[in-house]
Amino acid sequence: MIWQLDLILLLFVVICGIAAISVKDLLSAVILLGLYSFLMCLLWTEMGAVDVAFTEASVGAGIGTVLYIAAVYKTTRRSKD
């Protein structure tokens, strides 16, 4: 465990999280969430939890992003009624 690398990665994770909830465009928020998942995956690999990192990379960054994008395409900003 290198604490300097941990600190840098955690800083990026916090930046990505705040950016994902404060950006207005939904598609940008989804991409930022995928970036957040990849950074968490790097963090977990660096801490030695390879199995958790594998799950995060495949579910959080892979399937999750695709499902969010599919859901964003089905929604509109204003409701019809």
Partner: peptide, 17 residues
């Protein structure tokens, strides 16, 4: 080794997606 049924299943599903 790292991995298992859940992760492998997700990767197989991702290929179909």
């Amino acid at each position: 080794s790292p991995g298992g049924g859940f992760q492998g299943g997700v990767i197989l599903g991702a290929s179909f997606i």
